[in-house]
Every structure is written in structure tokens, then in C-alpha cells.
Simulated assay, not measured.
Amino acid sequence: MADISPLAIAIIVCEIGFWVMLAAGLAARYLLRWRRTSVVLLVGTPLLDLALLAFTVADLRGGGEATTVHGLGAAYLGFSVAFGHSLVRWADQRVAHRFAGGPPPVKPPRRGPEKVRYEWREWGKCLAGAAIACAAMALLSFVVASPAQTEALWGVGGWMMRLGVVTGIWLVAGPLWTTLANVRIRGLR
């Protein structure tokens, strides 16, 4: 078995930590009725992202060379920041409905202009996540370490290019597809 990178372990720990803090925050809110404690736990989830960033900085400052795992860490950070709030809201609606008599969770629109707006908004989060990840990689490449040390992040085939491809695919498969389908349906009426 190959050695597992300490940074890969940190990413796994942060992901598990996010779900543990989310579950603990929702349990405190709806099962124990500890509103303040739940707010602290739920608001504290971004601290895991900061811990991951600090761990990545320390790893590169120690002379390490950036690898695929460093790019994955930056991508995790960006998308966690961009989608974290809506993921917490999604889980909160479901737990409130199931355990506290709250209203049914809001479902994404299935068609029409509402669906188009929804798809563009979700793609905007994707774009924000990619931008945050690229900013983190730029910080790592030019402030924390040297560009030679971090070529896996920004070089040809690096993580910045991969994020651009993912963002482009999401654009085509999500909001553009939905927009064109909506225009076509409206034209048939």
C-alpha cells in the first residue's frame, strides 16, 4: 500500500469534520433545542476550510512540492466555501421537516424560467468555487511557495485548467442546456 499524503488525510478529516459538525449542529438545534450551540456549530464549519488552508500552507512552506493533492485541497476549499451555505440550508430544511414539524423542503424548480434562474444561480456558485480555488492556488504559487514548486497547480494539465474544464462543462450541461430547452419549449407554444 502506497503512503498516503498527510494533506490527503487532512482533506478527508475536513470532509468528515464538516458532516460531523453539520449533524451535531442540527442535532443540537432540533433534538436538544440548543439554538445557540447549533448556531456556533453550523457557523464553525468554515473553520475547517481555514484549517485545511493553513495545513496546505505549512506543507508547502516546509519545502514540499505541490501535487495533485494540493490542487484537490484548493478545489475542496473553493467549492466548500461556494456551496457550504446552501448545503447547510438544504440539510436544515430536511431535518426541520422530519423532526420539528417544519414545512416540506423547497424543491428545485423542474421547468420554466424558474428552472433557468436556478441553473444559472447554481452555475454561479460553481464559478465562485472555481475562482476561490484558483485564488488559493495563486496564493500558494506566488506567496507561500515558488512557481517551480507549484507547477502541478497552474501548469499545463494543472488544477486551474481542470477547474476551467469543469466550469465549462457545467455551463453547457446546466444553464445553457436549460435555457435553450426553455426557449425551444416556449417557441413550440
Rank of each mutant, 00 (worst) to 15 (best):
G25V: 10
V95T: 07
T37Q: 14
G102L: 10
L52D: 03
W120D: 07
P108Y: 05
S146L: 08
D59V: 12
E15A: 08
I16W: 02
R29K: 13
V43H: 02
L32A: 08
R35D: 13
G17K: 07
K125Y: 01
W34N: 06
G164S: 04
M21A: 09
A148I: 08
A27R: 11
W177T: 09
V172N: 10
A27E: 04
L180I: 07
F99P: 00
H70P: 04
I11W: 06
D92M: 06
E114T: 15
R33E: 12
G102V: 03
T56D: 11
A138C: 13
A133P: 03
E15V: 10
V116L: 06
L22H: 14
V106D: 13
I16E: 00
F83K: 01
L87W: 01
A74G: 05
L140K: 06
G174I: 00
L42T: 07
A2Q: 08
P113S: 15
A51I: 10
H97E: 04
I16L: 04
V172Y: 07
D92V: 12
L139V: 14
A10F: 01
A131N: 03
M137Y: 01
P175W: 00
L127T: 08
I169W: 00
L127A: 15
V144I: 12
R33L: 11
R94S: 08
L188C: 01
G102Q: 14
R117Y: 14
P46R: 15
R29G: 01
G168E: 00
F99M: 09
D59Y: 10
P105Y: 04
A136T: 14
A181H: 13
M21I: 08
Q93F: 07
E15D: 02
D92C: 11
W120Y: 10
R35K: 06
H70Q: 06
A66N: 02
R110K: 03
Q149I: 02
A82C: 02
V43G: 07
M137G: 00
A58T: 03
R36K: 15
T56M: 11
M1E: 13
V156Y: 03
L87G: 07
L163I: 00
S80E: 00
A82I: 01
S80I: 01
K115L: 15
L180V: 12
S80D: 09
G25I: 09
R110Y: 10
R111Q: 14
C126R: 00
A51K: 04
P147Q: 08
G155C: 15
Y118V: 00
A23G: 14
L153R: 12
A100N: 11
A131K: 10
T67V: 05
D59R: 15
